[in-house]
Design a protein around this nucleic acid. Structure first.
Length: 270
DNA sequence: AAATCCCACAACCGCCGCCCT
DNA sequence: CAGGGCGGCGGTTGTGGGATT
């Protein structure tokens, strides 16, 4: 018997989320928490499948997300981690607070891959690309490597290899205090900061869509977002305390709402 | 100014592993 | 122990916007 689809596809909306849908989802999750993703769309009044809601939340609406391009430092982290972990994006993301696996995966495919190739490094193996090799030979070598990988994974040695990789990871990544600090927590363990410690950048140089946090403030002041007006009062945040004290209102969060409904004119900090 | 191309990234799909019954 | 449900993950696709012709 095959697995049932995650949701009834009939009548469900697909494609880009609207500001209205985002609001509904945020409001619901902030009020009720992330209970059961399957039930959330129904309870929140959304014509989406639970999976879609979860993705939207984790990749876009989650308050602790950093937005904007990866810094050079983060990029280097991604390269290092990828060399050790391969395409295990969620594992890589867990070392970069505020970044999602999807974001890192996209950044890898669109930026880092090209960058490495330009530098003469094979993004798959992280080894120098041979200029003498014919494309056909290269292909064969890649296939061989894939097979070797598969074989290795299928053996009982796999767990031992993973263990070694973890050890290597520890020894190679802790090369400077900043690295060590970042390495010491994952996205699930974003260090808590007080609301009044949150710094809002006054410009968004790394933000491709040219947004800043004023949108957020305006959003907060809209009736639908009353939940955030007591932002400095942790007691009002209830079960979300852990997340909201670490909110980093990055320049693009939540971008879709901002893109569609608001414009900026002044810089404001909390 | 319009058409086409290209790129970045949000979102979807299908599979997998874990957990519960 | 087996089967089903759910969340999570990684690969892939679709779309919107900017660049180029």
């Amino acid at each position: 018997m095959g697995r049932q689809p995650c949701c009834e596809k009939v009548g469900l909306k697909k494609g880009p989320w609207t500001a209205e849908e985002d609001k509904k989802l945020i409001n619901f999750i902030l009020t009720n928490g992330q209970c059961c993703w399957r039930a959330i769309p129904k309870l929140a009044g959304l014509l989406r499948c639970g999976k879609s809601c979860r993705l939207r939340w984790t990749n876009y609406l989650r308050p602790d997300l950093k937005r904007g391009l990866l810094s050079d430092y983060e990029e280097q982290m991604v390269i290092d981690l990828h060399a050790q972990l391969g395409n295990r994006w969620s594992k890589i993301a867990s070392h970069l607070p505020g970044r999602t696996d999807n974001e890192i995966k996209n950044h890898w495919n669109t930026h880092i891959k090209k960058k490495l190739k330009k530098m003469g490094i094979d993004p798959l193996t992280h080894k120098p690309l041979s200029t003498i090799e014919e494309p056909q030979q290269q292909l064969q070598q890649e296939q061989k490597q894939q097979e070797n990988k598969k074989e290795a994974a299928e053996t009982s040695l796999e767990s031992a290899i993973i263990e070694v990789m973890r050890e290597e990871e520890k020894s190679t990544l802790m090369f400077d205090p900043m690295e060590e600090m970042i390495h010491s927590f994952c996205t699930d363990e974003v260090p808590l900061i007080e609301a009044d410690e949150i710094l809002i950048p006054s410009s968004s140089s790394s933000c491709s869509s040219g947004l800043n946090n004023n949108n957020i403030l305006q959003e907060l002041q809209s009736p639908d977002f009353e939940w955030l007006c007591g932002f400095n009062n942790k007691s009002q945040l209830g079960l979300w305390d852990d997340d909201f004290t670490s909110w980093d209102w990055g320049p693009q969060c939540p971008r879709m709402v901002l893109d569609q409904e608001y414009s900026w004119d002044t810089n404001v900090t909390f």
